[in-house]
Design a binder for these strands. Structure first.
Lengths: 154, 154
DNA sequence: TTTCGTGCAAACCATTTGCAGCAGC
DNA sequence: GCTGCTGCAAATGGTTTGCACGAAA
């Protein structure tokens, strides 16, 4: 888990592992670093962002890079109940949590230290090396409308 | 959300909604009810259990029934980071939580009232109708071995 | 110059769906 | 008998992979 990884730190680390720093990897990391706090992208989302910037990065490379950066702990992999994963920058050791509305399909981020503490305590008690804590609240918001964004309810 | 649903309650409810009680649905619900506390099955797992009992229920029906029972709140849908969903009986209003080992791919269940309370409080504060709370700890256990059960690390 | 990474297209795997026949109610 | 349910096979959607070429180190 990196403390306060700058792009340069990330790339140093990749290089030290015999991996290469390519324009594709630089660009993808940069996009996550420029993302507004709490925003997460699916592979397809990222691919569209890249295409919008006229970056001709293939979908396969998009997937490969997301996996790579997640394995190194630079991205956090999130699964909501949607059939595809989302990724966000793993900035610090204090992950935030998500409320997922099963009606309008929006997600809301929030922080709660107590939850993190409980997770840490449980891992410690059992002698496990903590990797990530995910807390999700599935709920239905008072909005009546259904938006277009794909199947929810899963 | 049913309080203490017996199979008969479930079927009454289905019938009252104009849905039908078929041998396939009965069998599948029965399997979940006989499952040891804390056990969860993927669609494929369930299909294998059915086949093992010489129940010729198609995979399509297996999926359709899992979805139906989840929509009615009788099953709880779980996603670990594995690429497929798991289902467990949704017995009470106090869901348990999961520790997922990214090394050996096992899951451990545990209960924690504080987590539930926090989730309930947050939903209440925001005026949301709570559907489910999921708390997952991803960790690596001290076991050195990797077992055969499919890709972890995701 | 040696690997490693990329793009492309094909493959994969979990899940969904159209359709015709069958079966609850 | 009406309508919902099932099985089958084909379709879908997200993700992975084999391969040949191109490019970091």
């Amino acid at each position: 888990m990196p403390e306060k990884s700058t792009a340069e730190n990330v790339f140093q680390n990749l290089r030290s592992k015999g991996l290469r720093v390519t324009p594709q990897r630089e660009k993808i990391l940069q996009i996550f670093m420029e993302l507004e706090e709490g925003t997460h992208l699916s592979a397809e989302d990222l691919f569209k962002v890249l295409s919008g910037k006229n970056e001709n990065i293939s979908l396969a490379t998009t997937y490969r890079t997301l996996k790579l950066l997640s394995q190194f702990g630079y991205l956090r992999e999130l699964d909501f109940a949607e059939g595809h994963k989302h990724y966000e920058l793993n900035q610090d050791k204090k992950p935030h949590h998500h409320i997922i509305c099963l009606n309008c399909n929006k997600t809301i981020e929030f922080e709660d230290d107590v939850i993190i503490q409980i997770g840490e305590k449980i891992a410690l008690e059992r002698g496990l090396e903590l990797v990530d804590i995910q807390f999700k609240i599935y709920a239905v918001c008072p909005n009546e409308h259904d938006d277009e964004s794909r199947t929810h309810r899963a």
